[in-house]
Amino acid sequence: MISTPAPLSQSETAGGAITVDSLGMTFDLGKQSLTALAGISLEMKHGEFCSFIGPSGCGKSTLLRLIAGLIEPSVGTVRVDGEDAATARQKRKFGFVFQDAVLLPWRTVIENIELPMIVAHVPKQERRQKAKDLLDLVGLADFAQVAPAKLSGGMARRVAIARSLVLDPSILLLDEPFGSLDEITRQRMNVELQRIWAAERCTAVLVTHNVGEAVFLSDRVIVLGARPGRIIAERIIDLPRPRTLEMIGEPRFFEHTRQLSGVLLSGAVVGAESDA
């Protein structure tokens, strides 16, 4: 579908799990057009946990959709393990946790988790077992037969995470998965997400508004600026793993969040003048 990008062949062999090259996305809005993303280039290693933070509307969700091959970029390319994004999606390499939990309300919790396996024709026996294991992993073993409407917001998120893991994705994409939760629940969920990510050994891409969350979870935080959405800064988070909630109070944690908040603020105010 996408024209094969000749210049990228060497990074394909370099084994980057995700390679994004001068990516741009412009939406056609009839009379005018809206450039949501421009000139995004980055490389993500296998097993890396990478976060994007940026102001609302800067194109974070769009970027995740592009990486998952749900939409086609206007310019540039996305390669996943050397293949184009749509091909990787068809091979079920992605787990995607959407901004809303989007559990199907007529299916029980365990049936929701089984759905991807039904679509992928996994045998019934294996399906049940796997779903149970994942419910264990997200700490909801007792809620298998419950209807999604009966779950709290945080529990629904955990089910959504379990569902996204069920086909053993090599890349986990998370779009503000804990966006609407209170701070304490969010921190608890962050600890769980870190544990799940470590257990599954997948590459993770997290989109969030919350600087603390990004620092807590990530190996690397990328700051996006708005209009058009572009990378304005990048910061390696070298805190030891596993990270604990006690670390949040430490000066080195605070230093990361302070620096990132500063960039975020300047990016939101200054706009296009920041570094390229």
Partner: peptide
Amino acid sequence: TDRQALEMMEVIGA
């Protein structure tokens, strides 16, 4: 239909 529900199905290759 909710866009995210459709995308969820797309991601699992339905």
